[in-house]
Design a protein around this nucleic acid. Structure first.
Length: 637
RNA sequence: GCCAACGUAGCUCAGUCGGUAGAGCAGCUGAUUCGUAAUUAGCAGGUCGCAGGUUCGAUUCCUGUCGUUGGCUCCA
């Protein structure tokens, strides 16, 4: 009895009963068979050697199919496990899933793998690839699986098998002498796995739980072609070259010291950028109707008890005691803003009230999780809290959305992703209020025509939040801004306003930030622009490079004129050749280099060299400076 | 916090199978006055992260500690 299957182009193909995906591909052409890694049967990915059901819709999966990369990487993780088992028979296998950009495999070992081990393992993987073992699926009964893994000593696998829900088919894959529990599908043959690389080794808890045994995790990646792999490795290199920790040191922006772990010290050049970011936000605050407040650093714990931080956020806070009173350093500004709001009686006519605060915050982060400027223990947010009447919320949200997009656009972050994070397990308040708050945010976004994704359980303890992510120049996502609705804090602090009908109501509080933490933002910005800051932010905007001592005075005049215009300019009077001066200025990523020689001095011009565009020729001084000034004023990115 | 790796001059790094260290760049001094990514010579610079231990002797070996880095969500 022949069967028939329908291909993506709607053509129908007759096959003998029991024919597999491989048979189908073979029938169409040997080249296709060679290119096929798996097959989609009625939308489900399957191995090529599985018999096709009659009347199904099928599509062969080749390297052109986006799903195929995951299959390839998953198979490569098995290849890794096989190599490890060959070289280290005592190693027990954990799990080996596909992740973004690659895969990993966890092993339980006595001695952790070293980077040298990785090379050996990778070589073994290549060997197994060359041996071209057929990879075959073997369905197996639960009791068989338990016995099999038990006898192999693979106790982690036994645990996994035991956790597979009853009634589910248990499967495994055999390639050569290696058998692994796996749901599949896989590529048909280890010979298909050629372009891969093991990247690093790290520790991971079994099933991500700190109470469990620690396993040795090997990360790697794989691609269809060596070219794609090389490109990917190049991207990793590029990311490394842009690392803000490296650039921060090279450009003299900030440093870290053991005396204050995970707490940046901004040097003069870093502080310039930092302060410019604050100025930038202040300028917009004036237009958007915010007013700035300044609040204390250390506050009595009683306030943190009122706000709920003492209950829900204590493990991230620093405490100190003086005169037998316990104080905590603020990890957030919101409660202090509630205190300010509470000092006066407010009319509905006064709302919304928008308090902005650039106060320094301190949050204790576990020592293993801090990282450069992006995860620190002290930072400052472009923080503000909006107190408004419930009916004003949507308008506030809408204007915030346009505000935030305007800010991001200034930095060239034109792709923004939005995520709605909903109630976490650790939270205050009733579910009714949470429903209200979550709906308010979701509705607000829908009305503003914004697309967003939901992330359940990731909200703050006092309210749901919208998170704004931008993609940087390397297309990496970073979370920056946030908008949170909070019904609880105003309630807890007993905040009120008088409504038009002379009754009292409780205002809603919106927590919001655009850049997020200035420290983190600076880190992201450094990586985004690879240290070549836009002219308005560059710590040094111009450098004047006299070629000979004869033009020192003229060079000094140029410097003076630029300074008078408010530009940040340096004059390089070192006894060096122009080439050296240019090289140093380039490495410092100074936007404009002004080369001054006898010619310029005689003609009253400057020869302009731009850090990216190179030599731009001689220009009239005023015209050039005016153009730079314009660039600064309009904040060209 | 846990696991692993790392910590040598201001920076980037080499080195010592245990006998108190070396380069390039930066710095200082001098010569050179030079057209778009490193002119040149000399000099100076280190309690080899910190604290213990082993040893005749430790930067090297051991223990502890501090810091940094990579991870610790993506379920067979």
């Amino acid at each position: 009895m022949p069967i028939s299957v329908r291909l993506p182009d709607e053509s129908v193909r007759e096959l003998r009963d029991g024919a597999t995906g491989a048979d189908l591909a073979q029938g169409i052409g040997p080249r296709l068979l060679d290119a096929s890694l798996a097959i989609k049967v009625d939308g489900r990915l399957q191995d090529l050697d599985v018999p096709l059901p009659d009347g199904s819709r099928v599509a062969l999966v080749t390297s052109k199919d986006p799903d195929s990369l995951d299959i390839l990487r998953h198979s490569t993780s098995h290849l890794l496990a096989q190599a490890v088992k060959r070289l280290f028979p005592a190693a027990k296998v954990g799990i080996g899933p596909v992740i973004e950009d690659g895969f990993y495999y966890d092993f339980q070992v006595e001695k952790f793998f070293t980077p040298e081990d990785l090379e050996v393992i990778e070589a073994e993987m290549r060997k197994i690839s060359q041996e071209a073992h057929v990879i075959t699926r073997q369905d197996i009964r639960r009791d068989e699986a338990l016995v099999r893994f038990q006898s192999l000593g693979e106790l982690l696998k036994v645990e996994l098998v035991s956790d597979i829900p009853a009634g589910e088919q248990i499967s495994g894959y055999l390639q050569g002498d290696f058998y692994d529990l796996c749901r599949g599908p896989h590529v048909p043959n280890t010979g298909k796995l050629k372009a891969f690389k093991l990247l690093n080794v790290a520790a991971a808890y079994w099933r991500g739980n700190e109470k469990n045994a620690q396993l040795c995790r090997i990360y790697g990646t794989a691609f269809h072609t060596q070219k794609e792999l090389d490109e990917h490795l190049k991207r990793l290199e590029e990311a490394k070259a842009r690392d803000h920790r490296k650039l921060g040191k090279e450009l003299g922006l900030f440093s870290f010291h053991p005396e204050a772990p995970a707490s940046p010290f901004f040097h003069p050049k870093g502080a310039i950028i930092y302060n410019l970011l604050v100025d930038f936000m202040r300028e917009h605050y004036r237009r958007e109707g915010y007013c700035e407040v300044i609040t204390p650093q250390a506050l009595d714990v009683s306030m943190w008890k009122t706000s709920g931080h003492y209950d829900k956020y204590k493990e991230n806070m620093y405490f100190t005691e003086v005169e037998e009173r316990e104080y905590a350093l603020k990890p957030m500004n919101c409660p202090t803003h509630c205190l300010i709001y509470g000092t006066g009686k407010h009319s509905y006519r006064d709302l919304p009230i928008r308090y902005a605060d650039f106060g320094r915050l301190h949050r204790y982060e576990r020592s293993g999780v801090t990282q450069g400027l992006t995860r620190v223990r002290t930072f400052c947010q472009d923080d503000a809290h909006i107190f408004c009447a419930p009916e004003q919320m949507k308008a506030e949200m809408a204007s915030f959305f346009t505000f935030i997009m305007k800010i991001y656009e200034t930095f060239g972050f034109d792709e923004v992703r939005v995520v709605l994070s909903t109630r976490p397990e650790k939270r205050i308040g009733s579910d009714e209020i949470w429903d209200l708050a979550e709906h308010a945010l979701a509705d607000g976004m829908r009305e503003a025509g914004m697309n967003f994704r939901e992330s359940p359980g990731d909200g703050a303890f006092y309210g749901p939040k919208i998170e704004f992510q931008v993609l940087d120049a390397l297309k990496r996502p970073w979370q920056l801004g946030t908008l949170q609705v909070d019904y609880f804090l105003p309630e807890r602090f007993g905040l009120r306003y008088v409504k038009a009908d002379n009754t009292e109501g409780t205002p809603v509080m919106l927590h919001r930030a655009i850049l997020g933490s200035l420290e983190r933002f600076m880190g992201i910005l450094i990586e985004h622009c690879a240290g070549a800051f836009p002219v308005w932010l560059a710590p040094v905007q111009l450098t004047v490079l006299p070629i000979t001592d004869r033009v020192r005075d003229y060079a000094g005049t140029i410097r003076g004129r630029a300074e008078t215009l408010g530009l940040r300019v340096e004059l390089d009077l070192r006894n060096e050749k122009v080439n050296a001066k240019i090289r140093d200025a380039q490495l410092q990523k100074i936007p404009y280099m002004l080369v001054i020689g006898d010619r310029e001095a005689a003609e009253g011009t400057v020869s302009v060299r731009h850090r990216q565009k190179g030599d731009m020729g001689a220009q009239a001084v005023d015209a050039f400076l005016g153009q730079v000034l314009q660039e600064v004023r309009t904040r060209v990115h």
